[in-house]
Design a protein around this nucleic acid. Structure first.
Lengths: 253, 253
DNA sequence: CGGCCTTTTGACAGGCTTCAAACTGGGTGG
DNA sequence: CCACCCAGTTTGAAGCCTGTCAAAAGGCCG
C-alpha cells in the first residue's frame, strides 16, 4: 500500500524527526499510507489527510463541544483527554501516545465530549472522517480497514479498562497500568522496558482513582523492591514477572 | 425498515412473551429488522440471523476461545461476561441486559476472549458477522448501521467505564454504576427508576473492585438515606439527584 | 417445608487519603 | 551561563474507609 506519494511527504526526515516518526507509526496503523495511497486519481485526494499539525505543550488538539470531523493520529508526543464534572472536578479519560488514535468516541455523536490537551510538544495527523466514510462506499479495503480500527478500539477498551475497574488495590491498578502502557509502546515499535511517562503523578492518580501521593509512594516502593528504575519521568521496567504478579494477584503482597 | 417478514417472525407474541420483547428491542437497535428486511430477494436471507435462542440460567452463550462468528443481541434476560486470570481468580468484564449487544470486542480477534454466562433465563438473537460484512459491500445503509453499532460501543465504553476507574470511593463507584444501569434500562424503553439487579452482590463487587460486603453495606446505607428502595434484587431509585451527587462528588458526603 | 446459597451486620486490621512540609528539576530572565 | 522560581514530587503522621473474618438472617428452589 505504500506509495512514493507517501514517502515524498516525509522527505528529508531523520530518525529523530517527528515527521518521520509520524509516518513510521502511521504505517504501523496502515491508515496514513492508505489515506494517501487510495484515491490518487482524484484531485481531492490530499484533503483526506491533514499532516503533521504541531501542537505545543498545553495546547488543545480539540475541545469538548467542538464538532467532530476527523480522527487524530498522534505522530509523536503525548496527549491526555479529560471531561469536566458538573462540580468542576476533572476526570481524566485517557492518555494517548505516538501511533495511537484519539477522538473515536465521537464518531457517532458528531461532537467531542472531552477536552484533549498535549502533555508535551506533539505532532498529529488528522484524517477527515466523512471523507474516509465516502471512501468506504468505493473501496473494499477501506471498509475492512475502518472496521479494524473501530474493532481494535473496542477490544482495547475492554481488555485494558476492565482490569483497572476490577483492581482491588492501588498496587494492582498502578502495576496493571504500567504494563498496559508498556504493551502500547511495544506495539508502536518502541522499547517495552524503557519509556517516558509524559503525565504527572497527579494526572496518573486522577485517571486511576488514586491520590497523587499514593502514586508517588507506590513508585518509590516499586523502586525499592527493584521492580523498576525511575529517573524523573523516565521509567525502566526491571522485573516484568513480579510486576505482572502484582497486577493480578490479591493485595496481600 | 419494518417488513411483514419481521412481524411474521414475532406472530402470536404478547407483551410478556420474550419473543415479542426480542423484536421490540431489536427494533430499537434497528439491527434485527434490518437483517431480516434487507436481502429478501436472496434465498439465504434467513441465515444472517438466528432468532431467539433460549439460554437457561448458568448456561453459556459462548466461551473464551470459541470462534467469533456472530454478534449476540440479548432479547430478554441478562448475561455476565468474565475473564480468568492466570492465578485462577475471575474478573467480571460486564453485565449485559435486554436490547444490548455482546461479543463485539472479538470482531477483530475472531476468537472470544471472555466467557459469557446467563444470569437468568435469557433469549438471544445471533447476527452472523461475516454475512453482515458482506451485506456492507452491497448496502449503504448496512455500512452506516454497522459504523453506528461499533461507534456506539466505543462511546459507551468511554463514557461509562472511565468514571468507574477514576472514582475515588466505593460510594462513587456504586452510585455511578447504578445510574449508568438506569440509563441503559431507559434507553431500552424500560423503567428508569425501577429495575431488576440480575447479578449478585458478589458479582457487582468483583466488577467494581469492591468486596461483596462493602456493596451490601452501601446498599443498606442508600436505603437508610432514602436514596433507593430495595427488595431482594428489585431496586427503585427514589432520589436521583442526590445519587448523582454521590457519583461525582468527593467521598466527603 | 427443608437445605443451601446469598445477603446482612458486626468487629478489627490495614491500606489509602488527607494535610503538611521539605525537596527536586525544568524553565525563565538577568 | 547561572541563579532563581515554581510546579511537581517525595516523605511523614494521623484518621477514615474498606477489606477480611465471622456469624446470623433471609430468600430461592427443589
Amino acid at each position: 500500500m505504500l506509495t512514493e506519494d507517501h514517502f515524498t511527504l516525509s522527505e528529508g526526515a531523520e530518525h529523530n524527526n517527528p515527521r518521520f516518526l509520524a509516518c513510521k507509526y502511521c504505517r504501523a496503523l496502515s491508515l496514513c499510507e492508505f489515506s494517501s495511497g487510495e484515491g490518487r486519481q482524484s484531485k481531492n485526494d490530499r484533503k483526506i489527510i491533514k499532516r503533521h499539525r504541531k501542537i505545543r505543550r498545553g495546547e488543545f488538539p480539540y475541545r469538548a463541544g467542538d464538532p467532530f470531523h476527523s480522527i487524530c493520529v498522534i505522530c509523536s508526543g503525548a496527549v491526555k483527554t479529560y471531561a469536566l464534572n458538573r462540580d468542576g472536578s476533572v476526570q481524566i479519560t485517557g492518555f494517548h501516545i505516538s501511533g495511537e488514535l484519539m477522538g473515536l468516541n465521537a464518531v457517532n455523536t458528531k461532537q467531542h465530549t472531552c477536552d484533549a490537551v498535549a502533555l508535551e510538544n506533539t505532532y498529529i495527523c488528522e484524517i477527515l472522517y466523512s471523507h474516509l466514510q465516502e471512501l468506504c462506499d468505493e473501496s473494499f479495503i477501506a471498509r475492512r480497514l475502518i472496521f479494524r480500527i473501530l474493532g481494535d478500539q473496542i477490544a482495547h477498551d475492554q481488555m485494558v479498562l476492565m482490569p483497572l475497574i476490577g483492581a482491588k488495590s492501588a498496587t494492582q491498578k498502578l502495576a496493571a497500568y504500567l504494563l498496559s502502557l508498556s504493551q502500547r509502546f511495544e506495539r508502536r515499535g518502541l522499547s517495552t522496558d524503557e519509556f517516558r511517562l509524559s503525565m504527572s503523578r497527579g494526572d496518573l492518580g486522577n485517571y486511576l482513582g488514586l491520590a497523587k501521593e499514593t502514586v508517588s509512594r507506590l513508585f518509590s516502593r516499586f523502586v525499592d523492591e527493584g521492580l523498576i528504575t525511575l529517573k524523573a519521568r523516565h521509567i525502566r521496567i526491571n522485573d516484568r514477572k513480579r510486576l505482572t504478579l502484582m497486577a493480578t494477584k490479591a493485595p496481600s503482597v
